[in-house]
Amino acid sequence: MTLLDFARGPALQWSLIILVFGVLWQLLGTILIGVKKDLSKPRRNTAVRDGLATIATRSLPEHQFEKKIRFQHFSGYAWHVALFIAVLFSAPHILFFESVLGFGWPHLPNGIILVTAAIALAILFALVIRRLSHPVQRLISNADDYISVIVVIVPLVTGMLASAHIGARYETLLAIHFLSVEALFVWFPFGKLMHTALTFPSRFRAGAAFGRRGVKA
């Protein structure tokens, strides 16, 4: 079995199993802790609307708070958007998704994907530098923060190298790219990447909880 066979075969299967079961385990375990029913009389019964509103508004710049967090806010947006473009619209990725899902969609030219991935990478580096240098972020950061950023940066770099055919044989580069994505899958349920699954539920519940008191969150 070649490295690429291993990366595309058992490594992919196992990393996906860990990803799926890990995420389910986290979600189920957290939900099972339970929440007590709130017995106070709500000011209004619009939990669903309030929850959905908070999902939306926490994604928008907010008047009072925006002044101070502009850098984090927009850099956060920019790198997520760049990452999604690079992941979802690169031609080889779409071919891979098609082989799994049975359908595909139009791709963007390789040059654009490379530039987008480079932008995502540059912002991630800037955020790491900020994490290391800003007193608040330095204080609150832990190993998870650094591991999580590494498991995102490495697939971006290996993906760019593979698509530009730089550094080694294409098969080797591709195998390393696969393995780096699999490392991300394996780490996902254990660290802060779980926010991907929990951000919207968390915002929803904040919106609903404040909403029943009559406060827009």
Partner: peptide, 12 residues
């Protein structure tokens, strides 16, 4: 528990 798991340590 969800809150403690969701924090991304952004410091905002």
């Amino acid at each position: 528990a969800v809150d403690l798991t969701t924090c991304v340590h952004c410091g905002m």
